[in-house]
Amino acid sequence: MIINHPLLGPRDAAEFVYLGDAALIDRPDPEAENADEKFYEYGYLRDNPAGEHQELWYHEQGDRSWLVVTRDTLTHEITSVKLARDEAKKRGRDK
C-alpha cells in the first residue's frame, strides 16, 4: 500500500505506524460536566465502518509527521491524506 504524503509524495506503508480512528484528534473537554462519560467514549468506543474511514498514521520511518488518512476499509483505496497538524488546527486547535 502506498500513502501519498502531502509533503514527501508517495511512500511505502511500511514506513508508517497505524494508530486508529482519527476521532482521537477531538479530545473531550476535561472541565465539561459529562467529562467522565465523554472520556470513556473517547478511550474505548469506536465505529467500525465497512467503507470510508478516517484514521491516524504516524510516519515513523520518515519525517515523524502524523497524518489523517481517509481509507476504504473494504478496498484499501486511499482517497485523501492530510497533515494531522493542519486538520487539528482546522478543528480549532491553536498549535
Binding site: 509524495g9 511512500r11 514506513e15 520511518q61 519525517d63
Partner: peptide, 12 residues
C-alpha cells in the same frame, strides 16, 4: 527526475 540532486529522505 523523482529524486533529484540534493534530495534527502528518511526511510528504512
Amino acid at each position: 527526475d523523482a529524486f533529484g540532486i540534493g534530495a534527502v529522505a528518511r526511510t528504512s
